[in-house]
Design a protein around this nucleic acid. Structure first.
Length: 274
DNA sequence: AATGAACTCAACCGCTCGGAA
DNA sequence: ATTCCGAGCGGTTGAGTTCAT
């Protein structure tokens, strides 16, 4: 499996790692710890690039790695997270203890993608396109999302990722250009993780063919340990999400940089090519 | 049994990000 | 403010394996 040695550029080994190389890498990291990948090969006497060492360690040799047998629950979570994040494999992997971005990426491309393309109803998206339906999330989360209290999210096998900031992630379908949009943000206290909804004055046509004044999206937020757990658990169905009355909506202050929504608006503008 | 197609997945590549200087 | 460089990310490749004929 993998690539064989097809060239010996600069005297480096390429392709599949041998058991001996693996052991050298493990031994070195046990002594010196992770990091300084550029120095590692020389220090350990490996004829590999630092990049290659890092990849081998993170994807295969690191303690706590799970291999193969992705469960139905894991698959379900991958699908839902992919709806939310797109090809942000590292972020998705971060919510699947012991799984690596590479494995999830491969699994998606070889298994899930095909199922989705074949129209398997178990993997279908919502009728309105790729929009993450909050009520569905809340329901599904109850039987497949690991309990955040018991989940080893903070344990040693959680994939560490730098991708903790997410920009301009559109939860809803592609939207028509929002000309002269006058956005408002809802401020539902249960939705603190950047999932926002904007009311626009000019209705756009969603993928279900309906006129829609509400655009749900996520933009520029920082994610902590509880982010996905909260997102997947919370009941953000249409009625509860929008609030009971108009007081839940506030005008967006575009000029206020401290207002989280201002970045959102800029993101919207960028998306609209303005 | 032979062989070619399809599939799987480990590894590589190029790019971006973020911190340090 | 700029540059440099290590680390991380996502897309792609291609050898090995499995399946179909």
């Amino acid at each position: 499996m993998g690539r064989s040695i097809c060239s010996a550029k600069e005297g480096l080994n390429r392709g599949a790692w041998t058991a001996t190389e693996d052991q050298i890498l493990i031994d070195d990291i046990q002594v010196h710890g992770q990091g300084n990948w550029g120095l590692l090969p020389k220090r350990a006497g490996l004829k590999r690039t630092g990049k290659s060492c890092r990849l081998r360690w993170l994807n295969y040799l690191r303690p706590g790695i799970k291999r193969g047998n992705i469960t139905h629950d894991e698959e379900d979570l991958i699908i839902r997270l992919h709806k939310l994040l797109g090809n942000r494999w590292s972020l998705i992997a971060g919510r699947l203890p012991g799984r690596t971005d590479n494995e999830i990426k491969n699994y998606w491309n070889t298994h899930i993608k095909k199922k989705l393309q074949n129209g398997n109803s178990n993997f279908s998206t919502s009728s309105s396109g790729v929009s993450l339906r909050p009520s569905t999330l809340a329901r599904q989360g109850s039987d497949s999302e690991p309990d955040p209290k018991s989940s080893p999210n903070t344990g040693p096998c959680v994939v560490q990722t730098r991708a903790t900031r997410c920009n301009k992630v559109i939860l809803s379908q592609q939207v028509q250009p929002l000309i002269n949009a006058q956005p408002f943000l809802t401020h539902d206290t249960n939705v603190r993780c950047g999932y926002e909804k904007i009311m626009v004055s000019t209705p756009f046509v969603d993928t279900a063919g309906n006129a829609n004044n509400w655009l749900d999206f996520m933009a520029d937020f920082d994610m902590d340990e509880s982010f996905f757990s909260n997102l997947l658990k919370m009941d953000i169905s249409e009625s509860s999400y929008l609030g009971k009355n108009d007081q839940d909506c506030h005008p967006l202050n575009v000029s206020d940089d401290s207002n989280h929504g201002s970045e959102d608006l800029q993101s919207m503008s960028a998306l609209n090519g303005e």
